[in-house]
Design a protein around this nucleic acid. Structure first.
Length: 201
DNA sequence: CTACCGATTGACT
DNA sequence: GTCAATCGGTAGA
């Protein structure tokens, strides 16, 4: 139970991984305890022809993890907050999936303490919020998610007989390649960070 | 060294 | 809906 997904899950096309990681569980274990959440929203960053990818202009110290093995974490900071990606595709191909939101399943009280708020929707809805709730920072950049220790992704037990319904939209916040349909989320899940562009009244 | 700026969030009108 | 705090990464002088 809570077996980590193998490297072969990540060593595939980044869009396929971004879609299939939806509905999986993100597990984080520290001395404080465990937190678990269902991944409900993710974005793909392509190795080629994607100017929104941090690796678009080549390898730097920051994005080095994206050039490493699939199934490792790429953690970066933006606006003084952390975001979590999982590295995909073979070594040397800098693609990754940004985990944008999870639905809290276990360890909710610990998430509340770390976030300093009790409103459920504010705990893990958004890439930097979920990192704070799960105590994810630079110390986990490059971490091997296939080890099944400290931080990993696992298949949800008692999977729904019906597969999750996936919607597609444009990525959030990017200023380059704004029109690429590379954001994926579970339709109707309230923990998705924001409705697709053009939604609402 | 300085200047610019972003894969965000939370406060505010 | 709008807007600015925030700070490390990157590029350039």
């Amino acid at each position: 139970m809570h077996e980590p997904l193998p490297g072969s899950f990540y060593a595939r096309d980044v869009v396929q991984v971004a879609r299939e990681i939806l509905g999986k569980r993100l597990v984080r274990v520290t001395a404080e305890g465990a937190t678990i959440g269902r991944i409900v929203e993710a974005e793909a960053y392509l190795a080629r022809d994607d100017p929104a990818n941090h690796a678009h202009r080549g390898q730097t110290r920051r994005n080095a993890s994206m050039f490493g093995p699939p199934g490792h974490a790429y953690v970066y900071a933006i606006h003084a907050r952390f975001c979590l990606n999982v590295v995909t595709e073979p070594v040397g191909v800098p693609s990754a999936v940004l985990v944008r939101a999870v639905e809290p399943l276990d360890g909710v009280e610990l998430m509340r303490q770390r976030r300093g708020t009790s409103a459920p929707l504010n705990l893990t809805r958004g890439p930097a919020r979920l990192c704070e709730a799960f105590a994810i920072d630079y110390s986990l950049d490059g971490w091997d998610l296939t080890r099944g220790e400290e931080l990993w992704v696992t298949v949800e037990p008692n999977s729904d007989p019906q597969p999750v319904q996936i919607a597609t939209a444009t990525r959030v916040g990017v200023t380059a390649a704004q029109d690429l349909p590379l954001r994926f989320f579970i339709t109707g899940n309230p923990f998705v960070s924001r409705p697709p562009r053009g939604h609402g009244r």
